[in-house]
Design a protein around this nucleic acid. Structure first.
Lengths: 338, 338
DNA sequence: CTGAAAGCGCTAACAC
DNA sequence: GTGTTAGCGCTTTCAG
């Protein structure tokens, strides 16, 4: 790395003091003569001078950096979420530090400590494994502003969220309206609170319509991944249901594959509805009907809240709700008796 | 943010000098008595002291940060690539700063300047739009070590790469061996050098087998995206070919969807082979045959090289090659005359 | 209009 | 074994 040119170099060459240069470069130089200002500015451009970040922040105590903790960056759901974060961060000239913690609490703690060391100004947490204890212990201890997403709704703090209960209802209504009487559910073997809400909303509609959902037989549990959905196909088929609600699109897409391999026709033999509306839904076969969460907006909204909190440090905890809605595609159809 | 506890606080409480604390905390404290060492360490734990990053780096001049520039983080190819980067970075205690520049040169420059300001130690560039000029102008000017990936092979500098020519040959061989005589190609409307190599390898095998590839009719060009592949389906079909090689999996997957909507059966009516082996290939229908690039390893390998370069600043430009291989799945099959 | 001087929190020669 | 001291590059009072 070339030796960096410092503010002192500029000052010397301009024949002024370091103070002068500093003030002018930080737009606090009204009081200096236009000639001086122009000289300094010209010199900065000539040498492409960039103030040293560390030196600057050492004084300013703000790194304009926000941490983003997601389970898996290669997952398009979180990829899109992060893009939402980035779009807002960029506007506010914050830099996001993104970490993919792979649902590994140790990794999460490591990254967390790294972030604190780097004095991030705030944190967006989109990780279901981040426990209340970790948050209390590490984040609150350091009094770092943070925003939660996709968390157990029992936790405290500012958050963005969608109405999971409603989302579950929407999914159920769709299947019921298509005439399905026997509906199965594919959900996580280790559900977070928001997933429970989603499922409760679903069951609520089932019950209202006097349909049954046998808790044991019709509720299949598997990991919340494509592979989880894939491997659960046999069990889903065994329920004999004519429609199935998968707790998220990843699972639903895995399920699609599993059902194909079992020579089950979708939606003719069984309708499948997912949840999230990741951008892949249009590219699986058949195109996946789902309940949309505005993923990008969630990332953007969380970041907007966070930056507000950093700037004004508003005291009260706020919750921002985002809408969910049905996206009808080709994986669901009317019930046809066999 | 709570006022941070500083090294001075520790020193005072431990009844020793700041130097003592600093040395001990940096594992250079052999010369101090065990008692002192333990006292200091205990205090650090008690107060969860973390050295101030900015102050530290101001002296050390190393932020242990590497920049990573990718076109699109929500794209699983780059998501996986970034995970590879992260895995190595973490081992070496480097923090990756990941930017998704959306193939927008302005954004790329902005992020680049941000990174330089933050005195990153090195840069992994996985972006085809990053031109030689930008690299020269911004990166070389600041003498930042960098590693390229997926770039125009004409550029200078250390790099990781795969043998695209061979990859193209592998794809062609597979189709030829299946008995296909009339093969179409779906490639980028704005190809980078590595794509050209890929295509040249492909054409080489076609020619060797005395098959023709009409440059105009059989080479379809579209954006290198799912949507690009989707919209190109009609044109591909119009070639009358019994097999098609798509320049990457994204396009291939889009093409699959487009062909479905045209009621074309894959692989019965037309075989499709992609390139990259993104993890979605197993979850489209039919499962996509492709040429694998070791994406994770590429990210990891690039990062390993970069960190070596940062540490030892080895002079000579190095190139590390990664293997490619055929992954046979369900989207290709033997030629059957109609 | 301008600059001297203090100091952010830390590390590292160099004394003692 | 331990501490003094001098900065790292920058911003910011405050005194001209």
């Amino acid at each position: 790395m070339k030796k960096k040119i410092t503010i002192r170099d500029l000052a010397k060459e301009a024949g002024v003091s370091v103070t002068t240069v500093s003030q002018i470069l930080n737009n606090k130089g009204d009081r200096f003569s236009t000639a001086t200002q122009e000289r300094v500015l010209a010199l900065r451009d000539k040498y492409k001078y960039v103030p040293d970040f560390n030196a600057r922040n050492l004084i300013l105590k703000s790194a304009k950096t926000i941490g983003v903790l997601v389970p898996n960056i290669a997952n398009p759901f979180f990829g899109t979420f992060v893009e939402g974060v980035q779009s807002i961060a960029r506007e506010a000239e914050f830099i996001p530090l993104v970490f993919s913690a792979n649902r590994d609490p140790k990794l999460e703690k490591y990254y967390l400590s790294q972030m604190i060391e780097r004095s991030i100004s705030g944190l967006v947490i989109a990780s279901a494994t981040m426990t209340t204890e970790t948050i209390k212990e590490v984040i609150s201890f350091n009094e770092i502003p943070y925003i939660l997403f996709d968390q157990n709704h029992t936790q405290e703090g500012d958050r963005v969220q969608t109405n999971d209960y409603l989302g579950g209802q929407i999914a159920a209504k769709h299947l019921v309206e298509l005439g399905h009487k026997h509906i199965a559910v594919l959900t996580s073997d280790n559900p977070t609170e928001n997933l429970n809400h989603r499922m409760n909303g679903f069951k609520n509609i089932i019950k209202e319509n006097n349909l049954s959902l046998a808790p044991i037989n019709d509720v299949i549990r598997a990991p919340l991944t494509k592979d989880g959905g894939y491997k659960a196909a046999k069990d889903v088929l065994a329920t004999g249901a004519s429609a199935v609600f998968a707790a998220n699109d990843e699972m639903a897409i895995g399920l699609l594959r599993g059902l194909h391999e079992l020579d089950v026709k979708i939606p003719e033999d069984i309708s499948v509805i997912g949840y999230d509306n990741i951008y892949w839904d249009d590219y699986v076969y058949p195109r996946l009907t789902t309940v949309q969460q505005p993923i990008f907006d969630l990332g953007a909204g969380a970041t907007k809240m966070l930056i507000e909190q950093i700037s004004h440090s508003s005291a009260e905890a706020r919750v921002q709700n985002f809408p969910v809605k049905l996206i009808k595609r080709d994986s669901t159809s009317s019930y046809r008796p066999k």
